[in-house]
Amino acid sequence: MKEKIENWLEKKTFHHSQFWDLLKLIEQKEKKNLKISLCIPTLNEEKTIGKEVVIFKSELMNRYPLLDEIAVIDSGSTDRTLEVAASFGASTYLAEEILPEVGHRRGKGENLWKAIYQLEGDIIVYVDADIANIHPRFVYGLVGPLLYQEDTKYVKAFYDRPLAFSQGLRPSGGGRVTEILVRPLFSMFFPELSAIIQPLSGEYAVRREVLENITFPIGYGVETSHILDVYRRWGMDAFAQTDLDQRIHRNQSTTALGKMSFGILQSFLTRMQDFGMIREMVEIQKVYRHFEAKEREYILMEKEIREEERPPMATVPGYRKKYNLPERA
């Protein structure tokens, strides 16, 4: 296994600086006649969205036309996220207004899933909106492997672990949930996948042929389930990963990470059952319980976390119609 993982790392792990020559990337994109879309899922991100749109629009559309569209897909922000994004030239959409016939669920995964319908790229790049040190490398570093390697279908970002941070901003390393939950699970049940350094990173670029054929948990489990589904259907060679150096973003509380882990475990266990790796499983409870201490009193907090899943987009009639896919039998 060690050799297998090392071989994969050798072949499929990149640093963004390998793709610095944007003119060559554009040449490659044109040669392959590909369209590339950027999707930024948002919920109340007015403080960071302006900078992201400005940087990507200036550098990757105006100066170097690597991107064909920049779209912000919003879960219903109550701040000025969409107004700010639109003022700098992003296309803005409310997730609930896309494919209204399938209804609306609240969650980041919902935005990512509906982006497959709304955006027209052959490659879709997903970048979170809360990145304080945004830079074009967050896009070209992920698109690079897809443009140069035919067999690569899904490229994940990973980041450095800087030594110091301040002012409420935390540089991300492997991530606490990755190291405490996901990596142990992968090591136990899918050891090859432990080669993916940051499986939960919110930045990835994927070919449409993959996106339209996988299910989308609408909550915390979306990244984990993507990795398991792509691995099972297309194998390890479908993945690549790119080191994007530092990523500075808001710190999350331990409680928030607990909820996140609860959602990820739901998706993971469901997948294990689907893959026949667990024969019998008791019904999974959907309420996450934790405590908040107030002086000497401990208050039980309960939060329902239900990892509902959206079906593969290719099964949605409205999508098949828009993209002229033959009707299913």
């Binding site: 007015e46 403080k47 960071t48 302006g50 900078k51 400005v54 000025r80 107004e83 700010v84 003022s87 700098f88 304080a132 040190n133 301040s166 002012q167 901003l169 500075i248």
Partner: peptide, 9 residues
């Protein structure tokens, strides 16, 4: 000093 730049509308 934190040199993060913020772009508002």
């Amino acid at each position: 000093v934190d040199h993060t730049v913020q772009v508002d509308r």
